[in-house]
Design a protein around this nucleic acid. Structure first.
Lengths: 266, 266
DNA sequence: AACTGTGAAGAACTTCACAGCA
DNA sequence: TGCTGTGAAGTTCTTCACAGTT
């Protein structure tokens, strides 16, 4: 029986596309904002704009969850917040440990979004004995020696790695051996994990490099803004640089099955 | 004219797929490690393993850059490092400003990977007058009032936003007006920018929520590890939990055109 | 009349499998 | 012989466009 809950509603269930799953948190955030403003319903168009996607995509995404809207009207904000939260598993509280309490680890520990969104920082762990006991974000830092007991005592299944690259794989191995099955990796390394363990990574330098790639392209195509501009037929309108028709922040993308390490000093 | 360089090699050039661009930094990192160990050549298989992707994908990716390998042998490490660096625009030095010097901003400022990878922190900017002049990572924090002059004086085209969500859009607008055309956003907000400006975002809570989604699925399918396990026919092997055949850290994925806000307290 | 839900078309990405070259 | 480079097939994701519902 496990932790009860979620015995699929019979209709709909299997396989929500990964791309859709990755957008659900965005919708949830936009919906939460609407909810706080006591907005009762939204159309796919409005919500899509707030989330920065297009409405067809949003409707398609929601169609994988079920038929939660009302034709001619839109979606009930509160109801959708609940359904998406449930789908994401946020109706329960996930204890999380953060390993590596340097600048970044401390920043993550202080991140206010945890509690409000279904996560709870169960412990902060660092290998430096000098850190032990020191309070960070209201929690005493615990030493790495205690890692295994902390994981099992708190039933932690999600771990965040914010250590230097060199320590990441070792920390990862210990987390996994202790029972963690989901890891968010901020260290700039490819982690090797057993089947059944999920890893996601966040990597500053990779993101910057992707931006640099596009930045270089821009420079190559426009030369100096004002000089021989608009060479290759790329930009649709006129001036491409500053202020012009605003557009929902699209940003680049990230390949599926993607692999991206993370922030953190070497 | 312009900044010289990159006048496409005639052959190959237009349109490297986004998914490929997103992986180039991974390859580059793996190659750099090999280079430091003075390894002269690698096969697609070896490099792919190091980068955590499969070799067919890697070869296809490289094929968009040109034919830089030698059949029967592999790729010359140094040569590939150069080619990828050039493609990513890392043979030049990009000045970057970081706005919002809280815990996260400081962590980013201290990130060692900057200098080594084609980026240089030109300035740290914060709205708090009390921070002004305080040294962080060896640089004095400058006040937001100076934002515009800092951007133009240093020819900055890439900005990093690490402010609270509430300030992000405003900071973004100022950066863009001052000439920044690429933004890395760590604030949990969808930024609206003019055409021609790229935005990428990094968001802790979104990553955690995606992990929670999969974690929930695991719980639902395996119940308690050891009890009525392997219900729905998902896992191929046997036990899915801890230690078992290691696999290159795949991690989840991220939708193209994706939109993901970022870390930072509310 | 307004807006959702979705089949179908299209685009992007991945994987296969093998021809071709060193 | 060994490994790259790449057409072609397969898969996933996105967008279109409209039937269906309130």
């Amino acid at each position: 029986m496990a932790t009860g809950r979620t015995h699929r509603p019979a209709t709909r269930s299997r396989g929500i596309p990964e791309a859709t799953v990755a957008r659900l948190p965005l919708y949830l955030r936009a919906l939460t904002a609407l909810s706080e403003r006591s907005v009762p319903t939204v159309s796919s168009e409005e919500l899509a704009t707030a989330a920065g996607v297009n409405s067809a995509k949003l409707r398609k995404d929601f169609s994988y969850l079920g038929s939660y809207g009302t034709r001619g009207v839109g979606y009930d904000v509160e109801y959708l917040v609940y359904q998406i939260s449930r789908e994401l598993g946020l109706t329960q509280d996930w204890p999380v440990v953060i390993v590596g309490i340097g600048n970044l680890g401390a920043a993550l520990a202080n991140y206010g979004g945890f509690a409000s969104r279904g996560f709870r920082v169960a412990a902060l762990i660092d290998a430096d004995p000098a850190m032990a006991g020191k309070p960070v974000a209201g929690l005493p830092v615990r030493h790495t020696d205690e890692l295994e007991s902390i994981i099992s005592d708190n039933g932690v299944s999600i771990g965040v790695i914010a250590t230097p690259a060199g320590a990441a794989q070792q920390v990862c191995d210990r987390l996994v051996a202790a029972g963690v099955t989901s890891i968010l990796n901020f260290a700039p390394t490819v982690l090797v994990v057993p089947d059944g363990v999920d890893v996601r990574k966040v990597d500053l330098s990779i993101e910057l490099q992707i931006l640099a790639f596009h930045e270089q392209r821009k420079a190559g195509e426009e030369t100096v803004p004002g000089t021989a501009a608009a060479a290759a037929g790329a930009a649709a309108g006129s001036g491409a640089t500053a202020s012009a028709r605003p557009r929902a922040a699209t940003g680049g993308r990230k390949g599926p099955d993607g692999d991206v390490p993370a922030v953190m000093p070497a």
